[in-house]
């Protein structure tokens, strides 16, 4: 009890909460700073056609998160992923680009000065049908920002040229649904699948892919993939219904360099620190967000996380802001919380 008061006090100063009218799943930090603060996009998760995307404004000085009602708009089906355009994308207009995936890949222009959200394009990767195969996730290439890669439950990964709104290339990436995709370089990406494998693709050699990991139990799906942008040798993945975060070294395929096993329930989300090559954050059904520091040598008893945050409910989403590396965003139930690292 003596400890609870200081924790409560310090927590209110170190965490900011946004209460949404509906459950939240997807979220994204903007790399641009507008007049009213940094923008955050959150997507609702209603198992229905009618869903929404809200744009929030975060002021770290006053520790406030405010919704921007004029920048709230409808989205068909819950978005599976949201991303703002990387800072390397130079655009003549002052607006910020937001991409959302789900039934289609959609591009939106967020213009806070004029308080408008304009749909720019709806992209379909299916050549034979008017319906796009549902997209589970995507990643925006920050080295070549006109390139964006999506992954789908139809086993394919699609690389888009978003300036021309066309498919640049499409690869049959896996044997089952592809759950996540991540860029490493301008032409190199990796993906994880329900077939339990992590594969690396090079657009300069589309006929081949390299399997760098397969889950130990056959056909245990892999859910998420995070590539360490500070040290491209390392990536992290998580297995469905597993409390492990698997750290991979692409130079030694099939043998993970570490398995982080301190969550008490399934892990749902992982994110590398944007400005450190040794730190990674994970969130899971045990309502905890853990920050890990990877040692150079693994100890015999396994690796303990550095620090922990307990949310009020299962954590579904986790993002580590690259424009504000002091802050981690998590989504659980109908709340979005910003946590000071």
């Amino acid at each position: 009890m003596d400890n609870s008061a200081p924790d409560s006090l310090s927590r209110s100063e170190t965490a900011v909460t946004y209460d949404s009218p509906y459950p939240l799943y997807a979220m994204a930090f903007s790399s641009l700073r507008s007049s009213s603060g940094h923008r955050i996009a959150v997507g609702s998760f209603l198992e229905d056609y009618n869903n929404r995307i809200d744009i929030l404004s975060f002021d770290s000085d006053s520790m406030t998160v405010k919704p921007l009602p004029n920048l709230s708009f409808e989205h068909p089906y819950p978005p599976t992923k949201l991303m703002f355009s990387p800072p390397s994308l130079r655009r003549p207009s002052s607006g910020d680009l937001l991409a959302s995936s789900g039934d289609f890949l959609r591009l939106w222009e967020i213009n806070e000065d004029s308080s408008t959200v304009e749909p720019i394009s709806v992209l379909n990767n299916s050549k034979t049908s008017e319906f796009c195969a549902p997209l589970t996730s995507f990643d925006w290439n920050d080295v070549e920002p006109k390139r964006l890669g999506t992954c789908s439950i139809d086993t394919t990964c699609t690389i888009w040229d978003i300036e021309k709104s066309v498919v640049e290339t499409q690869l049959i990436a896996h044997d089952k649904e592809v759950h996540d995709i991540a860029w490493g370089e301008a032409r190199v990406f990796a993906s994880v699948s329900a077939d339990g494998s992590v594969r690396i693709f090079d657009l300069r050699d589309k006929e081949h892919s390299t399997i760098i990991y397969e889950s130990p139990q056959p056909d245990t799906p892999l859910l998420r993939l995070a590539w360490n942008k500070q040290d491209l040798r390392y990536m992290a993945t998580i297995l469905m219904d597993s409390n492990k975060v698997v750290i991979l070294d692409i130079r030694s395929p099939t043998m993970p360099v570490a398995e982080l096993e301190r969550h008490q329930a399934s892990v749902n989300a992982i994110a590398w620190a944007p400005q450190s090559c040794k730190h990674i954050c994970s969130g899971g059904d045990d309502t905890q967000a853990l920050i890990w520091e990877l040692p150079t040598v693994a100890g015999p008893n396994g690796i303990d996380p550095m620090s922990v945050y307990s949310a009020g409910s299962e954590i579904n989403q986790l993002q580590w802001s690259s424009s504000q590396p002091d802050w981690i965003g998590i989504a659980f139930a109908n709340k979005m919380q910003l946590l000071r690292v």
Partner: peptide, 29 residues
């Protein structure tokens, strides 16, 4: 502390005293 996170060691002590969290809800993913 400046951070919203607590050190893991402290959490370990708390966790030992609290029951294991179990959820019957299907994973959102």
């Amino acid at each position: 502390i400046r951070s919203a996170f607590r050190s893991y060691m402290k959490d370990t002590e708390l966790r030992m005293m609290s029951p294991k969290i179990s959820s019957s809800k299907v994973n959102v993913k």
